[in-house]
Design a protein around this nucleic acid. Structure first.
Length: 473
DNA sequence: AACACATCATGGAGGTCTGA
DNA sequence: TCAGACCTCCATGATGTGTT
């Protein structure tokens, strides 16, 4: 059985190895960073060789780009120094050396038996420095997560006091996805920030009958904490753990914790540019990080079953490793969200335009019009194409809302210069001219051009109505 | 497979305006 | 004065999606 799994895993890694170059190729983080990556420098180098006459100028350009990269690294270090949280002061300059988290799991089973009030329990503890880099994000970016960020991205005032630096990051590995009595969370990973480190403590059920003891230990670890962060935990980890507490007749109220579900936040912010919002996909596409030595989630139940049957570690170290990666990725993602929301302070603009536009939409929905206006204003001046268009329309809606019809029509007319045939823009203008300004001539003109934005029947009625109004004026 | 969202489409409520 | 048309806002239902 174990050999089967090993073969399966080997096949999987071969598959990953073969697709990796392509995936890396399709990832263009340079556009996100507004800065060239090493790859783009290399490709620039290659094209230089083909154009000998221009080589000197391009060499100079490469030199400039490299300098820019160094500048970004320098600013990141400065950012750490600026972090307004007391703990951040503990992060020395030395710990901020560029190191990327992506170590392969050790062959041996990590951790060991620890004597607890509930008996001997297998626990593994791993630490990551907040100075570690996870793709384009430093783990210490979590410390700059603003006070209002959580309530903003969760669109819920209950998160007003949410502090991701004091939260527990929870990820479970289980014996399957089905919510049956037989599904147990055999590995419970808990991440928390202490000083200048992220501590990942993993509680392992090495024998099925030890589940109640591990659950009791978990409740002890969570004692005194109020906030948790999960990825899809609202639907998966937390309901599962709640069921296990009930089935084991242990009184522990997981509903008392405020759960920041990263999946919800990620979908809200990044959905427009990444279709697949799984954690691994977020790592690659938002953080720019490619996992090494990871295994697919659907193999995990089988690996644990094999461990229980044969009482041999087999591939369990990979599962421990996978769990640590998930927790660290959650911390990094929180950092990415924190940085996005504090985009004004980002001199090196690591921010993707579409993420900013999502943020504007979220702000607008919550009635945070000043924030939305600020982002759309930035978009109007600094973006091109669809981003600029969306910013102009957003600003026009806000202007109409505050009854500034002059600005609203001006903004929409500017948008029309970019896409003169847009029936939707013509429809918006037609409504403002008809209902707000009462300029029926212009309203009719735009109504005629709005064909296609709504039903043919509605369009005809609108045009006819405006013709009548114009006649009777 | 269970669950909790998110998004999208649809329709109703309530307010305002027009024209007979 | 009142029916009808239009707007915005909100509620509801269908569908899709992550988790191991």
């Amino acid at each position: 059985m174990e050999e089967d799994l090993k073969r399966k895993l080997a096949r999987y890694f071969r598959k990953v190895d073969t697709i990796e170059p392509q995936e890396k190729k399709s990832e263009d983080f340079s556009s996100r960073l507004n800065t060239p990556t090493t790859d783009s420098i290399e490709s620039l180098k290659q094209s230089n060789e083909n154009e000998e006459g221009k080589s000197e100028r391009k060499e100079e350009r490469i030199f400039q780009l490299k300098k820019k990269l160094e500048e970004i690294e320098r600013k990141t270090k400065q950012r750490i120094q600026k972090i307004p949280v007391k703990e951040a002061q503990l992060i020395s300059q030395q710990s901020v050396e560029i190191s990327t988290i992506g170590t392969l799991p050790t062959k041996a089973m990590p951790g060991g038996f620890v004597s607890t009030p509930y008996g001997e329990i297998w626990i593994n503890e791993t630490k990551r420095s907040l100075g570690d880099r996870f793709g384009s994000i430093y783990l210490c970016d979590i410390l700059s997560f603003g006070k209002e960020t959580a309530s903003m991205v969760c669109m819920n005032s209950a998160f007003d006091d949410f502090d991701p630096n004091r939260a527990v990051y929870i990820d479970t590995e289980t014996t399957g996805l089905e919510f049956s009595c037989a599904t147990i969370p055999f590995l419970i990973g808990l991440g928390f920030i202490e000083g200048k480190e992220v501590i990942i403590r993993q509680l392992f059920i090495d024998r099925i009958e030890k589940e109640p003891e591990v659950l009791r230990l978990l409740s002890d670890f969570l004692e005194g904490r109020k906030h948790i962060v999960t990825f899809n935990g609202k639907s998966y980890d937390i309901p599962l753990l709640k069921t296990r507490y009930i089935l084991n007749r242990i009184n522990f109220d997981l509903d008392a914790f405020l759960n920041f579900d990263l999946l919800t936040a990620v979908r809200r912010i990044y959905k427009r540019r990444i279709k697949d919002c799984s954690l691994v996909s977020c790592e690659r596409q938002i953080l720019g990080f490619l996992r090494e030595g990871d295994l697919p989630g659907d193999m995990i139940p089988e690996i644990y079953a094999s461990f229980i049957r044969e009482q041999k570690e087999g591939l369990m170290p990979f599962v421990f490793h996978h769990n640590v990666q998930d927790i660290v990725a959650m911390v990094a993602l929180m950092g990415a969200i924190g940085r996005l929301v504090s985009w004004r302070e980002e001199e090196d603009t690591c921010t993707h335009p579409s993420d900013l536009l999502s943020l504007a939409a979220i702000s607008s929905k919550q009635g945070r019009h000043t924030e939305a206006e600020e982002i759309w204003g930035f978009g109007k001046e600094n973006l091109e194409g669809e981003g600029r268009l969306e910013s102009l329309v957003g600003l026009a809606r806000l202007a109409r809302r505050r009854k500034d019809y002059f600005s609203a029509t001006q903004l929409l007319e500017t948008a029309l210069e970019e896409v003169p045939d847009s029936p939707h823009l013509h429809l918006m203008l037609s409504k403002i001219f008809e209902h707000d300004i009462e300029n029926y001539e212009k309203a009719l003109q735009h109504a005629i051009n709005s064909r296609g934005a709504e039903d043919e029947e509605k369009w005809q009625r609108r045009v006819e109505r405006l013709r009548k109004k114009l006649k009777n004026k």
